[in-house]
């Protein structure tokens, strides 16, 4: 479904970042087995990138529907707080996981109702939970970091399956399931249609409201899953900091992946790639030994370059699909043709 050509800017960006990481730290690609678990910087990239990857899966669909979900970071904190406090209170693992996921689903459902049925603008609707959610998480944890030592829950953060860290396994499985869900059913097409033109989709007999309800609920579910992983990873629920600002990383991952904030065409796989790019950059900065004051500047510069490359490549890609372009390769590729507008959308 995604041609290699379309993914070229992102893949090149990733390759360049990995190369720079390798220059900064020659041991970057070294991998060994530590306690039956893969261990190395590349593994870190995937492992640390997993929560944002998971958020990006849900966020991709929300953005494709021409929405945005600002609440995912706060939902992570709520789900984490729920999992940690219930674990400390002695509930069995299954109940803990179920409760945390239900928290996420309910949050998503609330967002969905606000957007689909009360017609609130998504940015406003989800802002409510973004602000209130962290407060609720703090109420749950009563203001302190709830630390636990339950191996079952910890497994989701630091365990491994066939040597692969659990967060990566979970992100990969969820990614595959989500892609199957949207591309093996008609869900993907219907979400894209609603995102491009909700009115026309309603005229065509689509149940736009239910579709919107679904994407927000699914995003809430993804956020809860990411929250469980983040909490399990540090063996504690930190209501103040868990998932803080991650909604922005997730949105950025989706944008880097090439899904327009104006809705429509989306690719879950590309968004996950976007999350990896962001994390490869973060890990690279940590390894480089730059003074931390430069972290954000470096990050911003790299992102601008990726988006610029993406925009230029999209403007060029339009030529490929047009008749006559191949016959006259000497024609300039960039022009003010409408297809170039597409490239400006993510910016």
């Amino acid at each position: 479904m995604i041609s290699l050509r379309r993914a070229a800017p992102q893949l090149i960006a990733l390759a360049v970042i990995l190369f720079l990481n390798w220059l900064a730290f020659p041991g970057f690609f070294n991998i060994r087995i530590q306690d039956g678990r893969l261990f190395g910087s590349v593994v870190d990239v995937f492992n640390r990138g997993a929560p944002v990857m998971i958020l990006a899966i849900g966020m991709t669909m929300v953005i494709a529907s021409r929405g945005v979900d600002l609440s995912v970071g706060a939902v992570m904190a709520m789900a984490g707080a729920t999992a940690a406090t219930m674990t400390v209170a002695g509930y069995p693992l299954v109940a803990v996981l179920a409760a945390a996921l239900v928290v996420g689903l309910l949050c998503g459902l609330l967002n969905g109702i606000l957007v689909a049925f009360l017609d609130l603008q998504p940015i406003v609707a989800t802002l409510i939970l973004m602000v209130a959610g962290r407060g609720i998480a703090q109420l749950v944890t009563e203001g302190f970091i709830v630390t636990f030592n339950e191996p079952g829950l910890i497994f989701f953060g630091t365990g491994s399956f066939l040597g692969i860290p659990m967060p990566v396994v979970i992100a990969a499985v969820l990614g595959v399931l989500a892609i199957l869900l949207v591309r093996r059913t008609a869900l993907g097409l219907l979400i894209e249609a609603v995102g491009v033109n909700r009115s026309a989709s309603t005229y065509a007999g689509l149940n736009s409201r239910v579709l919107l309800l679904f994407v927000y609920t699914f995003s809430g579910f993804c956020a809860a899953l990411a929250g469980i992983i983040a909490t399990a990873d540090i063996r504690g629920a930190d209501a103040n900091n868990a998932g803080l600002w991650l909604e922005l990383d997730a949105i950025l991952a989706v944008v880097i992946g090439g899904t327009s904030l104006l809705g429509g065409r989306f690719s879950i796989l590309m968004s996950m790639l976007g999350a990896i790019i962001i994390q490869a950059m973060n890990t690279g900065i940590l390894l480089s030994g730059f003074p931390p004051e430069y972290n954000l500047i470096v990050k911003a510069a790299v992102i601008i370059m990726i988006l610029l490359a993406q925009s230029l490549s999209l403007a060029g890609a339009g030529a490929f699909f047009r008749p006559g372009a191949k016959a006259k390769p000497q024609e300039p590729l960039r022009s003010s043709d409408p297809s170039a507008n597409k490239a400006q959308n993510p910016a």
Binding site: T185, L189, L190, E192, A193, V196, N197, A200, S201, G264
Partner: peptide, 28 residues
């Protein structure tokens, strides 16, 4: 505003209503 879904292809636009009638589970 109410007819075409601009960013989608001609193919998808033509299939849209039939797909909606079949339901999301039965993808064409």
């Amino acid at each position: 505003t109410d007819g075409i879904v601009g960013d989608l292809s001609v193919r998808e636009n033509i299939a849209l209503a039939l797909q909606a009638r079949r339901g999301w589970l039965r993808r064409m």
